[in-house]
Design a protein around this nucleic acid. Sequence first.
DNA 1: CTATGTGCAAATCTTTTGCATGCCC
DNA 2: GGGCATGCAAAAGATTTGCACATAG
Lengths: 132, 132
Amino acid sequence: MTPQRQLVIDAVRDLGHATPEQICARVQRAAPAVNITTVYRTLDLLERLGMVRHTHLGHGAPTYSEQEHQHVHLVCHSCGSVSEAPTDLMDDLAERLLRESSFELDVTHVALSGRCADCPDDHRTADDEEIR
Amino acid sequence: MTPQRQLVIDAVRDLGHATPEQICARVQRAAPAVNITTVYRTLDLLERLGMVRHTHLGHGAPTYSEQEHQHVHLVCHSCGSVSEAPTDLMDDLAERLLRESSFELDVTHVALSGRCADCPDDHRTADDEEIR
DNA sequence: CTATGTGCAAATCTTTTGCATGCCC
DNA sequence: GGGCATGCAAAAGATTTGCACATAG
């Protein structure tokens, strides 16, 4: 366990869910010399150790969060905000998938996409707004 | 409507769901001169026109499919296979999200992740296997 | 001494942009 | 001629790799 690794863990914990870039920026506030390469390598390592997990939020960037930090991500593709919902929302679905398709759902790995409460239902299609 | 655009539409239809790269390769079988830039631009255009949609399958690459081709994608993060399930699987969930979180779910935009019927439950974590 | 972690630079891959050309009306 | 679509080359952004150095055990 090196200082860099500890900093990455702290950053992941503090940020909740963040991209490698954001994590790197955070780490560099404490230790400017830390290279982004190290952040990538460390995230990879921590993930293999089961200490962090990553989730795909839709538009390319994977985000990392603590392993324990389990919830379903709801991404608004109009405003880009990410909110969280309890994983038991998915329990029924998970059960049905297992029964009907023998598919064992990993609830936390992928974000659900849609429009959040704050965004009006204008008629642009959702993807027009997606951050690239 | 140019020949290139028709070819892209055909490729999207034929391939079901495919990345821009795959679509480009397919198009180039018929017209080798077509540039990948054109594929990207055309997909963008077709998407704005509502003729195709794209879905995030988890590991970075977005895949494009016909607009009408509505279903939920199930991605196995052990073997990488993509299967499809009827969207009404998600109806209950969508309703609950709307009621409890005022979140209007877009069922088709994001793939669900998990382990498919064919993959044994070994104890590597799912993400170890994720295609990068 | 050996193994491992780190920083740096460069390579790679994907996607986007700028620009010149060509075609259609 | 004006506008739009295309191809090409280059840029941009994200991630990975090779390598040399340092440090710990």
